[in-house]
Design a protein around this nucleic acid. Sequence first.
RNA 1: GGAGGGGUGGCCGAGUGGUUUAAGGCGCUGGUCUUGAAAACCAGUGAACGAAAGUUCCGUGAGUUCGAAUCUCACCUCCUCCGCCA
Length: 422
Amino acid sequence: MLDVRLLREDIQKVTEGLKKRGQDIGLTGLLKLDEEMRRLLKESEGFKYKRNMVSDKIGELKKKGVDTDKETFEMREVSQRIKELDARIKELSEDINNRLLNIPNIPHSSVPVGRSAGDNVEIKKWGNPHKFNFPVKSHMELGDAVGLDFQRASKITGAGFVLYKGMGARLERALINFMLDLHVKEHGYLEVSPPFMVNRESATTTGNLPKFEEDLFKVDDGNYYLIPTAEVPVTNMHRDEIIPEVMLPLYYVAYTPCFRKEAGSWGQDTKGLIRQHQFDKVELVKFVKPEGSYEELEKLLSHAEEVLKRLELPYRVITLCAGDMGFSSAKSYDIEVWIPSQGKYREISTCSNFEDFQARRGSIRYKPKGGGKPVFLHTLNGSGLAIGRTMVAILENYQQEDGSVIIPEVLRPYMDGKERIP
RNA sequence: GGAGGGGUGGCCGAGUGGUUUAAGGCGCUGGUCUUGAAAACCAGUGAACGAAAGUUCCGUGAGUUCGAAUCUCACCUCCUCCGCCA
């Protein structure tokens, strides 16, 4: 959420920032509402001051046994007026808030201008795609032998789900454990295992609500939502909290399944593991002071990259252009892994700095050491990594002519030393 | 699912209609004292809006009243017991 004060003080800057995203949002109406609300608030407070004074006086007079009918009658009207004003103020502030909640974050100055994925900028490549001297198979073709069962998942639930069996299930679990261990033991993250359903407030903090409700699975029973990423529950760990400065930075890593409706992406990646309604992901989340948040983003990115380096999977990193970034992000990098069957790099992680956008929505602040007012901190997160797509990359990049798949060395300790599946 | 009891500042805890501008304690910060420390003593210690005066916040939301932490209703949540259950 943007700061209303920024709108009041520099509406030009905000408008330009949003234009960079390709969004032309009129803000003058919002400013008018804000002005009116503040005017009424002043008026209401004046009446409240009066009410408090006279009410105290009534108390004293009554103690002395003096008649207070005149004052009581007068205050009855004042109270009525306050009630009306407060009702209007509440309406206005709800309206203002709703509008603010629907405005995306302003891109950081280093973010390239652009409308869509075509304008993203590649900044780094690592590893070389392997040359195969036989026709490469897709992970769907390879998957059968290692226990990927799409047919049965579809019978059990429907399209967009997968059933892992045998060594496939084992490989998935190995990936989760490998990634968690790396981030916990070597990168200094605290492992958390959060709820997989969240309430409205939590989904609003991260920016999934109110604008993107159609992307979420709703659990009707309790007004809960299945999480689309661990970012949602983990970021909300500190919602409505004021953290002592000495506690910062906070690094968390969480493994969770993720549930997404994928509304609006019909027809893309309909087959295979790339796009599923449910997939597993290991997610990195940081709470940091504003000053260092962009260095923290670089570090976060390197932590996610490290997973691919150790798995020896070729990848590249791109900076997302303003138009291709997520709603809440101020700057995002995508890591894309090489997919041999498609002959291109595909997204496997997004690392983002949200600055204080989410912190403001969720009121997540820290208390400065030397005293002073609480300050909104900066939140960041990134996949480290998406398990399903990592599975795809391993199956395809490590495939052998006979249809078997070599297990990357770092995963073997998690698989009883096995070197190859099936 | 049934029955009962709670939710007050960083923490503990008093407060059942009007000097409560939320007592008191602990913790924390600063000071005095001390060779240094501890102890003792003194002072200061929540948040939002506002230039300020001030207004608001005692789980949340409605209501009663001139006036609500305090009374009424609904909801949320925690605890105890019973039942069911991984």
